[in-house]
Design a protein around this nucleic acid. Structure first.
Length: 103
DNA sequence: GCGGTGACGGTCG
DNA sequence: CCGACCGCCACCG
């Protein structure tokens, strides 16, 4: 992490997402002061080391679905969210209306 | 230095 | 409701 203030900023904001709630990539981007750059948020999180304290699993896409590539990682994120009390509907999506972090 | 890629998202038909 | 397009930009080969 030597010098990427943008990533640090993203990580900081993600760290503020309370347990039991979720945020979207676009939302994180806006809060980080870089509206429209949701992709960079995804890239930043993808770059996170596995032992990071950052609750990356609380970030989902605008449909309330998991955006990870790879079944393993997907089920991992899902179980982490479910362990926080978040429920997935029959479409495999989260009700953002109910769980999205209001900020 | 250039083109392809992707843990996104808004818009349009 | 759903798919197609397009803008966005750091990273990688």
């Amino acid at each position: 992490m030597g010098n990427t203030p943008l990533y640090s900023c993203i990580y900081r904001i993600v760290s503020h997402v309370p347990p039991g709630t979720v945020a979207t990539y676009g939302q994180i981007a806006r809060l980080a002061g870089m509206p429209g750059r949701a992709r960079q948020v995804g890239y930043a999180l993808h770059n996170l080391p596995g032992n990071s304290p950052v609750p990356w699993h609380r970030v989902v896409n605008r449909e309330g679905r998991i955006s990870l590539s790879g079944r393993l990682a997907q089920s991992h994120q899902r179980s982490l969210l479910e362990s926080e009390g978040i429920v997935f509907d029959e479409h495999g999506a989260i009700a953002l209306k109910k769980y999205q972090w209001r900020k």
